[in-house]
Simulated assay, not measured.
Amino acid sequence: MPRQLVLIGIGTGNPEHLTVEGINALERADVLFVPTKGEEKAALAAVRREIVARYRTRPLNTIEFALPVRDTANVDYKAGVVGWHAEISAQYAAMIGAMGPDETGALLVWGDPGLYDSTLRILDCVRGEGIAFSMKVVPGITALQALTAAFAIPLNTIGNPVTITTGRKLLHGWPDGADSVVVMLDGQKSFAKLDSEGLHIWWGAYVGMEQQMLIEGPLADVAEKIALARDHARAEHGWIMDVYLLRRV
């Protein structure tokens, strides 16, 4: 059989988010690839090590590697991301190419590999470079699931769709026809720039982790509180992962 790569969704920071399927996939892996560069990646790498220590029953060959840093000064956002992904693709190509022909490599992917994560796109680039491998994806708990579970609320209202977007997109205004909007990757605190009338927010940071933070209420009442809490948490921990649900009420 050709070398295989398995992407295991690990949830939002709580090792207990790992599914039984994920545990079994980790047990079968011959090598684990772990990104480590930067404060945020170091914290996420520590969670990955905890997962291995908790669930792996035998020694595991672990290869830690430093991810390149995306050039955020590039005025063309998409071009900057494409160039960054090309650098990561070259790293993956070298690591996967060094695997034995019948080995299984694993990547522990934050959240779920299919939702606002670029690993699958990057691995498509690796295949385009002529590196042969099969691929399996083990789904994980998403930030959306962790957030709504933490607040014990449904994601959607009856019979209505949910829009999933980014802070970058939300800066252009409320999505047309939207009832409930989940916002991810919002380093610009775009919620504070919206017309808050009639909007309710459920905001969470480090959801599922020991340092979990939750704030909810009418956006007009809590936007400043969330912004201050976010800035304080980022300064204290050196990194932050947050997600929020906005809903018209």
Score class of each variant (00 low, 15 high):
Pro2Val: 15
Gly11Glu: 04
Thr12Ile: 06
His17Glu: 02
Thr19Ser: 08
Glu21Pro: 00
Gly22Val: 09
Ala29Met: 02
Ala29Gln: 01
Pro35Val: 01
Pro35Asp: 02
Ala43Pro: 08
Leu44Pro: 00
Leu44Ala: 01
Val52Gln: 02
Arg54Lys: 14
Phe65Trp: 15
Val69Ala: 10
Ala73Cys: 02
Gly80Glu: 00
Val81Asp: 00
Val81Gln: 01
Trp84Glu: 00
Trp84His: 08
His85Asn: 04
Ile88Gly: 01
Ala90Cys: 12
Tyr92Cys: 01
Met99Arg: 12
Pro101Met: 13
Asp102Leu: 07
Asp102Val: 08
Trp110Ser: 05
Pro113Asp: 11
Leu115Trp: 04
Tyr116Gly: 08
Ile122Ser: 00
Arg127Met: 13
Gly128His: 09
Gly130Ser: 08
Ala132Arg: 15
Phe133Ile: 07
Val137Pro: 06
Pro139Trp: 06
Ile141Cys: 05
Ala149Lys: 06
Phe151Pro: 09
Ala152Ser: 15
Pro154Cys: 13
Asn160His: 14
Pro161Tyr: 12
Val162His: 05
Ile164Arg: 04
Thr165Lys: 10
Thr166Phe: 03
Thr166Ile: 03
Arg168Glu: 15
Arg168Leu: 14
Gly173Ser: 04
Gly177Met: 04
Ala178Val: 09
Val183Trp: 08
Leu185Glu: 03
Gln188Lys: 13
Ser196Trp: 05
Gly198Glu: 07
Ile201Tyr: 02
Trp202Pro: 07
Tyr206His: 07
Glu216Leu: 03
Pro218Trp: 10
Leu219Phe: 04
Val222Asp: 04
Arg230Val: 05
Arg234Asn: 05
His237Glu: 03
Trp239Arg: 07
Asp242Ser: 15
Tyr244Cys: 07
Arg247Asp: 09
